[in-house]
Each structure stands twice: as structure tokens, then as C-alpha cells.
Design a protein around this nucleic acid. Structure first.
Lengths: 206, 206, 206, 206
DNA sequence: TATGAATGAGAATTCATTCAT
DNA sequence: AATGAATGAATTCTCATTCAT
């Protein structure tokens, strides 16, 4: 009868977005409720009104970020037919472009925090399985269509995803010669060596 | 006049070890000076006597951990002649064996914390360069001796190290089917596919 | 224009009843406006609409409880002719029957709160004078009719009422061997020793 | 080796005394940690240093008050031979002399609070049993020596103690004509009527 | 009248740091 | 050198009260 529900949902999302920004900027342990409130343009009371405790707010923010990332990656492969192009699209969305990326710091904080919080471990686990399913699906399709070499899709997926994580960590932390371009180069090189040259592979297996 | 200096050095190291344990157990943000003091069997006053501030103590602890890890890896390849065996030895020392590993949580906390602390970024950078130099050196030696295929040693090193980081993160966070054994399997598979079958490669390149 | 006034009065009373329950259950200091509102099936806004402030609501609730208790005791002696029976009836209504009595906790909270709030002291004073007048009246009537011994009705009234208060406090707080039955026993024993055996007294006074 | 222990005990007691004063003055629900700290001449941190939580501090304060009261009453009958004199002494110490008594408000707050806190109920129960044992012992001794009439010492004790509680409550709350003198009058009148005139009783029982 | 989202003052609690002993 | 009692700034959380709808 009133537009209240949408107002509530919207307010909640604003707070979650503000929280994600704060986590990425100052780190999980330094986020203050008052920071989030200020950034969301509300009073601290509202945060507790919607989330009860700071901890709950932070957990929900991680959940929100995971969900947003998933939606973004799904959108990126919408209407992309070729497996190779789909893989490129997903990687392109996920890999950082600039050093000022706010997403990857968030994941780092999630992992560090999850070490001590089983619910966050569960969140990470579910998220990771989603990533695996997405990438592995693309690889399997590409193998079926002859675009990719026929190796263990699951193993390559794990190697690819974890290599990305590791590379982006060091890149984000300013490892020498590991800028965004170099990260992509190394990732694509791995993809090529693991899945590429389908011809040669087919040839070899004959 | 007295053997104090060594007593002091020893006391310092005890505190640093206690700090590392605490970080790994409860997380960087939850380490209290009093926890560290209790674990080291001293009073909080002593911690400040030796380190001035908590922040300094934590930074020094990370520094200490990095140094310990480096010494351990160097020791592991002492008197190992073959490049492949040296690579195996280094990986064996670094890869987790049990789920109750206290080292990798420490690195995760270091990375998350370094996002906000340039001095820690610098520490991580230096540490990473050490790792790279170590592994790359082994690979180059192996290529020179014909044990490894002649691909870009630097690229493979980066891919290998970051893949290890990424795999261990997920393994530590309880990813399904990613126990210590599986991590090693995937790592060794990558090593094999990237550097192995030197014959075939030589053959192919001819 | 509408039957609103009675609706308002009814709503007010519902809130007061809910407030009394809350005070008795969680204690004066722990009553939250939102608790009362929830129990009365309304929103917190309505509470302030009717009572202005929480303090006013709580004071009114005590006033309401005092008034209800008075009405109950008056009703209990309606159409009871003999003084002794009237005394029995009043005591019977007032003394707790079960341990789950919600009334006496309310009085305890009133007394504790009244220590700091003159308006509540005034309420308690007026209430107490009512009790005294009621009981003293019955005793005087009983003395006139020869049912009770001729001692100071006022003194006995005070002793009786305060003994009841004290006994019920300890009984409510779970004093060993002070259940509802034992409280009545002690009260009636006092009544008997103070007012009973009118014969003997008459005899003695002759 | 150092005078620390006594410093700690003393500091603890100072805080407890300050807490009791605050409870009596502003009421249990209005005591702020900062009030207690200011009154004890310390910082709020110290309160938590010694008591952990405000709740613990308040509970301990009640415990302290109970213990102090007991010691005072025991001291009052030290070296008093006659049972009647001992009873007089105990009552004299316990009954309020002025309206500005700080002790009885404390008991009222204890009772109200104990309704919601089993540990305080237990404290009250233990305290009450102490009072009963003390008074009942005196009465039994007086009966043995022929100073008191031979009625149920236990029942009279309960009636006496609860009447005192009830009288002091109303007196403290400013009941008309119930000043300290009148309270004593009524209490002593009860004692006399219940235990006095030992001769007559002895005579009657013969 | 009624709602309940929003406010913000107020209080408890934590913990790094200091310092007298 | 070492202790640990004491400090007090910083922060979370609560809840009466307001007010737009």
C-alpha cells in the first residue's frame, strides 16, 4: 500500500554498498559504524536498525559483494556464443584494469576475515564453487566444440582461478612488474598453454 | 658486563613468535598486547619496553615470519644437487601438509593488512622477490642442465608461485576437495606441464 | 460524532495493562516502550500519542494498578456482613495464592521506584491510607460488634499490613519455607493473637 | 613483597562503598559507571578493571552491603548478656533513626532487582536466613532464661522481621505518622505482645 | 489517528599506553 | 628491566522520541 518496502530495500543496499567501499578502503578491522553511516548519508542508529550489529552488517556486505560480482560475470557472457569468447569475457570482467580497483581488496579482506569466521568461509566456499562451475562449464563447452584442448577441465579451472587470485594479490600489493597488463598476459598465457592449440592437441592425440 | 644482550634478543624473539601465533590464531585485528604478553609469559609493560607500540610489534612479527620462512626454504635445498629435486624440496617445505597449518593464515593476514600499510607492502614485495629469485634460479639451472623445458623461467615462476598462493588460500578456507594432497597434485601437474618432458620439448623445437 | 472517546479510553487501558505486565515481568528499569507497544498490539508512536513520555506512561500504569487493586478489594467485601469475614475476604484477595503472582512484583517495583520519584511516593501514600482506612474500619466495626478484642485498631492495622508486605516480599523472593500457605498461616496467626479471643480480652479487662 | 594486594582490596572496597551510596541515592537503574568512578575518585576504566561489567559491580555491591550489615549487627550484641538486651541491641542497630538513612533504600532496590536476578535472590535468601538465625537464637535463649514467653520462636522471628521490613518501607516512603520513632514503637509493641509478660504467661500455663 | 523509519544523545566497554614502584 | 594498576580516548550499541506519510 505504501512504497515503504522498496525504501527499506534500497536503504539496506545503500548501506551495504557503503560498507563494501569502506572495507576496501580502510580494511575490515578499521571500518567504523559511523564511517559507513556518514558515507551512506544516515545516522549510526539506522545501521543498527537494519543490521543489528556491526558484525552482521559486515557479513551482509560481503554477501552482497559476492552476489554483485556473480551477477556482473553472468551478464558479461550473456549472448556470447563461442566458448573462447565467453572465457575471455569472464576473465575480462574479473581481472583488474587499474590499480585503483576496489573489488580485489575486498576479496582479500574476506579471505583474511573468513579464517576466523565460519559463516564467511561458507560464503567463500559457495562463491568459489560458483566460479568453478561457471568457468568449468565454459571450458567443457569449448572442448565439446573443439575450441579447447581436451584436458581435465576441472583441474585447469582450479589452476586458472587460483593463479588469478594469486597474481592479483601480488599485483594489488604492488609487486614489481606486475601491473594489470602483465597479469592479463600471464593469465592468458596459461590459458593458451593449457587449453589452446586445439589442433596440435587433436593432432597429437591421433 | 653481563650477557644481557643475548637475553634481550631472545626475549624479543619470544615475543615475536608469540605475536605470530596470535595473528595466525585470532587474526591481525584481534591481537591484543595482553594476549601476546601472556603467551610470552611476560607483562604488557615489557612489550612496550621492547617494541614501543603495538603496531611496531606486529610489523616486526611479520618481518620475523618472512625471515624464518626464507631460512627454512634455503635450508631445504642445502646440499641438493639436481634442479628438479631442489624445486621439489622448496615446494615441499612451502606447501601445507595439514589443515592446522599456522603459516598460511599469517600470510593471508599480512596481505590483507599490507593493503593499508606501505611498510608491509614493501616487506611483502621484498619477500616475493626473494621467492622469485629462488625459484627462478632453480628453474634456470634446470633448464641449463636439460632437466626443464626451455620456456620463460620468469613467467613460469610467477605462475607457479601465484597458483600456490591461490590454491592454499582456498584450501585453508576449506574449499571442497582441496585438501593438502590435492593442492600438491595440482601444483606438481602445473610444474610438469610447464617444465616437464624436456625431451619432448627439445624434440618438438627441433 | 463517533464513539471514539470510549475507543480511546479502552486503548489507553490496554496500554496500561500491558505496561503493568511488563513492569512485573522484566522490572521497571527494563521496560521498553517498544515492548509495551508490541504487547498492546500497536506501534510505539501510539504510546507517545497517548502518554507523551515513557515516564508518564509508567506512572499512569502504577496509578492504574493501585486503582484496580482497590476496586478488587472493595468488591471482595461487598455484601459481607461480619467483620471477621470481611477481614478474611480482604486478606484473601490480597495475599498471593501462587508463586506466579504478577501483582506483588509490581508493588515492589513501585516502592523501589518511588524512593526517587515524589509523585509515586504520593501515590503509594494515598494507596496506603486507603488500605489502612479499609482495614481499620473493619477492625473497629469488629470491635464494636464484639468480634475483635479492643486494642488499638490503628496500630494493629499498621502491624498487619506491614507484616503482610514483608512476608510477601520474602515469599516472592523465594525464602525457604515461605510459600503462599505459610504466609497466610503467619498472617492469620497474627490476626488471631492481636484481635482474637475477644472473650478472654473482655474478661481480662473487667 | 609489595603492598599491592592490600591496595587492590582497598580499592575494590572503595568502589563497592561508592556503588552502594549511588544505588541508595539514585536507584539501581540510574547508577552509571561514571558516577561510581567519580565518587570513588578513579576513572571508569578501573571499574571494569576490577569488576569486568557494571552488572558484576552492582551485584558485588549488594553482597558487600549484606556483609557489612551482618557484621554491624553481630558487633552490636558482642558482650551483651541478657537476651532482651541483645534483642534490643539488634533492633536498635537495624531500625532507622533518621529519614536520611541510606541503608534501607538499598534493601528495597535489592529486593526489586532480585525479582529478575536469581543470584541476588540467593543473596537475599542467605542474608535472610542469617537474620532469622540471629533473632531466633536470641529469642530461644530468652525463652530458656525465662525472659521471653514460650511461643514459637521461629514464627515470631518471621513476623517480627517482616513487620520491620514492611514498616520501614512505608516509613522511608513517607507514610503519614510513620516516622522513625513510631516505627520503633510499633515494633517494640509487637515484641512485647508476642514475647513479653513472661510471668503472666508462665502463670497462665501453670 | 496510526505507523515505523530515522535520529542522536547517552552509556558501557575495550584496550593501547603510561608510569609509579 | 619488569610489573601491572590506572588512564581515557575511541567505539559500539540502545532506545526514547520525532515526524513524514
Amino acid at each position: 500500500m505504501s512504497p515503504r518496502p522498496s525504501v527499506q530495500a534500497q536503504r539496506r543496499e545503500e548501506v551495504l554498498a557503503a560498507t563494501c567501499e569502506m572495507i576496501a578502503e580502510v580494511g575490515f578491522r578499521n571500518v567504523r559504524v559511523s564511517d559507513v553511516a556518514r558515507r551512506a548519508g544516515i545516522s549510526t542508529g539506522v545501521v543498527h536498525y537494519y543490521f543489528g550489529t556491526k558484525e552482521q552488517m559486515l557479513d551482509d556486505a560481503f554477501r552482497y559483494a559476492v552476489q554483485q560480482a556473480r551477477q556482473r560475470s553472468l551478464a558479461s557472457i550473456q549472448d556470447v556464443p563461442s566458448a573462447r569468447d565467453r572465457l575471455d569475457a569472464v576473465l575480462d570482467v574479473q581481472l583488474p584494469t587499474q590499480d585503483s580497483d576496489l573489488e580485489w581488496p575486498l576479496w582479500l579482506h574476506l579471505w583474511a576475515e573468513a579464517l576466523m569466521r565460519p559463516p564467511l568461509q561458507e560464503l567463500n566456499r559457495a562463491s568459489y564453487e560458483n566460479w568453478i562451475a561457471l568457468i568449468e562449464g565454459i571450458i567443457l563447452a569449448g572442448q565439446a566444440s573443439g575450441e579447447f584442448r581436451k584436458v581435465s577441465a576441472h583441474d585447469v579451472t582450479l589452476q586458472l582461478l587460483t593463479m588469478i587470485d594469486g597474481l592479483v594479490i601480488q599485483s594489488t600489493l604492488g609487486a614489481k612488474d606486475l601491473d594489470a597488463r602483465r597479469v592479463r598476459e600471464l593469465v592468458y598465457a596459461f590459458v593458451e598453454s593449457a587449453l589452446g592449440t586445439a589442433m596440435a592437441d587433436d593432432f597429437a592425440s591421433t
